[in-house]
Every structure is written in structure tokens, then in C-alpha cells.
Amino acid sequence: MKKTRNDRMFARGAAVLVVSASALLGACGGDDDAPAGSGIVEVRLEAEGSIPDGIAAGTGEENIVDGWSVEYTKYLVAIGHVELARAATPDPHFHSEAEFVVDTTSLPPTGFQLARFENVSAERWDEFGYEIVAASAAATRDPSVTQADYDEMVAGGLTYLIEGTMTKSDGESCVPGGAACRPATSISFRLGVPVPTVFSDCEAEEGAPGVSVAASTTTSVNATIHGDHLFFSAFPTGEEALARRAQWLANADTNGDNAVTRAELEAAPSAGLFPAPDYSLTGAPFAIDNGWDFVVAQVKTQGHFQGEGGCLWDGMGHDHAP
């Protein structure tokens, strides 16, 4: 991975030297409220297990309940602009301009480093966020991403490029309002989604906001990308029960070639793909008129923090049971 030199500390209206001098005075006891010491914060990108491991059919909370299993072959994300700040003291704060395009199906076990902030005062930095960005030439291509895929993402301003296959031994594709269902045991999909999103005010699952930095240590935190939102049956913001369903995607294969495209999803009215009460569209970030709207709306919310921790997306709340 190419190490960036974009990670830096911002200090609006104040020279870094002055800030350092102030910090030095604080450390010498000039200010009883000044935190003692500083540490390093490393921000990493990690993928929820649903991305590298897929989502199995089953009856459990995290299974797809209508019998389909899903495996991802690619789950590319354009991500960056990590931010670390304190609500009570906006300056100084830390911001990384770095952007990356990474395939989250093949991240190393320790994650992918998005940013590294040094000399972070040892206290709680309660405002943490990052962005899912429209891929551009400014983004660094990780070797996990082919040049062709990278070029496609940049050309389309994509934030995600998701490729996978869903399987079901007795699967069917039932185009709403169309002919009778036809056998379909394996259906592929390749979705290039442009949905830039700002994730902010991230909290760990237990509710602690941001990052707690200890002196003379390196604290690692994770921006976590979930891979199951495409198969959510609703748009949750709390702990309400949520099912995972995939039949809607099989039903969008209107030309019967066992491959679902964006064009097919755009042409498929939501009324046919997402019948109540199996699905609930209330609470979606915008009107869901077709299958593509659903894809964009669900993918928009899949940035998380420290695993199951939640963030505001574009300033709005989102959380759900694992």
C-alpha cells in the first residue's frame, strides 16, 4: 500500500507552531485542563463478514430467509476523508484528504489503513467520520482492484462496484406481472452504484462516541462496510426486527438471462418487487419507485464504525440489530 502524506492536523486560524507551543505549555502545567500526553490513531477499513464470507440461506437473524445464498466476487468501495475532532474544541482537528479504491472481499486480517494521525492528545475525540466518495483520479487504486474496474469506477463516479451471485437449489425468477415463474438456480449481478455519502458522529455499538486516545499508545479504529444491506427488507433506524430477503433481485431478471443489471432494476417498479408486508419502504432516504432506487437507498446506509457501531449518514441516523 502506498503510504500517503496527506494525513495532517488542521488548525484553523492558528499556526501549527503556536498550537504546539500551547500544548507544550499545557503539558508543563500551565493549564489544569490540558490532557496529559498524546497518542497515535490509526483508522482502518474493514469488511463485515457478509462480504468475504457471503450470506447464507437460513432461519437465523443474519441469514437470508427466502432460501437464497449470496456470494460476492467483488465489493469495491471508494472511501476516504477521515475526520477526527472534538465537539467542544473544534480546533485542532484531524482530517485526511486521502481517497482509496479497495476491494473489500480481500482485505488483510488487520484491515486496510485509511489514515494515521499522530500527536493526538490523550482524551476522547468524540467526532469521528469518513466519506464514501465518488471515485476519481485522485483516489489511490489498491492492488486488489483491477485497472479496468478502477477506470470504470472513475468514469462513472461510482462509490461501489458490487459483483456476485445468488444461488438456490429450487430457485425461481418471478417477474412481477409477467409470465409464470421460471426455474433459476443461479443469478448473477454486477452493480456500479454512485452514492457519495458522508458518515459522521460515529459511535461504537455500546454508544461511546468517537475515539478514546490513550497516551503513548496507538489506537486503531475501523470504518466498517456492511455487505447485507442490499438484502434488508426494510430501512431500519433502531432495533426493530429485520429480515434479509433476496427474491426481489431474482425477480428483476426480466430478460431471463440469469444476470441482473442496473437497466433491469431501473425498469422494475417497486410495487412488484417489494410487496408488503414482507418488505417495508417507509423510512427510506428517498422515494423508491423501482429496484434501482432500492439498491441505491440501501447501499447508501452501509457504512458503519467498529463493526456494528452506527454513524449518521448525511446527518441522518441509522442503526439496526446485527
Partner: peptide, 18 residues
């Protein structure tokens, strides 16, 4: 009927799209 696409079109409008 409530299992029809038309019913679901109205339902989706009332709860999300319109």
C-alpha cells in the same frame, strides 16, 4: 386485493413514495 401489485403500488405511495 392486498396481494396484488396494484394494492402494493398504493401502499408504497402512502408510506414512502408519495
Amino acid at each position: 386485493t392486498r396481494t396484488s401489485i396494484a394494492y402494493n403500488a398504493i401502499y408504497g405511495a402512502m408510506t414512502n413514495a408519495r
